[in-house]
Amino acid sequence: MAVGPATLARPAPVEGRPVTLRGLLEREGVFSWLMLAPGVLFLLAFVAYPFFYGIFLSLQDRRVASEGVFVGLANFRTLVRDAVFWQVTGNTLKYVAITTVLKLTGGLAMALVVNQRFRGRNLVRAALLLPFIVPTALSTVAWMWILDPTFSVVNWLLVHGGLISSGYSWLGNASLAMWSLIVVNTWRGMPFYGITLLAGLQTISPDLYEAASIDGASTVQRFLYVTLPVIKPVLIIVTMFSVIFTFGDFQLIYALTHGGPANATHVFSTWSFDIGMSAGLLGMGAAVALAILPALVVLIIGLTIYLRRE
């Protein structure tokens, strides 16, 4: 192919010259929008439209297979007077807050342990990430059996270890069920924190630690004044993402407890499923789902501001 003179041989488009199809396609704006169009139209139709349609539904008394009636904010007024709504709010906050703290500390510990030099490190890293990549519904089924009321292996270990005299009903007791969910969610999500934070730790230059050691810093001081400041941005971003996704968690809770016993483990997603899908009250279900929106908007704005500043 010709190099050099070809640059001169390609004149800039001049006014009045006939516009060819190829010339049009070469324009940055035309080319860009042609490329974008399929994806943008698809996301408008299947994300933006359902989102606004959901807001519209939440203002209606709408049942499956019948016409909706506009009722304004009546659904929301019913909700705030419903004790279950406040129980579900409490459950959701508890679930998100406690799992986030556990996943963050556990993940950080995991990253620090795996960040040491040892043989087979890549294999260990791959194995530790397994809970995160295996389909959640399927691994949750294994947990159902681990926590089975009659044949729980946890109970077997505790009884045979002499710690308790008879087994607990891990999923049948209201407060134990919530803690069981928290453990399973932590098990599933901790590797995400661990592996991402590990990638952050690996960006720290060994020189920094050496310099700190020469200055007489202890292990704890090196962690607080070298490690933590460097991985802080990663830590914050990972946590924000994880919080956003934990707010939307559905399948783990649906598979393990269905929100029971007696609403003790319902969160917004499972409760709105029960109302909207099982009971067929689409309007009310949409209103329940929208209850997470304010918290979500705050989180997303926070994340955006933080990413902009970085």
Binding site: F46, V47, P50, F51, Y53, G54, L57, I244, F245, F247, G248, F250, F268, S269, S272, F273, G276, M277, L282, G285, A286, A289, L290, I292, L293, L296, I300, L303
Partner: peptide, 13 residues
């Protein structure tokens, strides 16, 4: 970032 639980009811319709 829009979570799925916010969309599934309108999507089902």
């Amino acid at each position: 970032l829009v979570p799925q639980p916010l969309l599934f009811i309108p999507m089902s319709d």
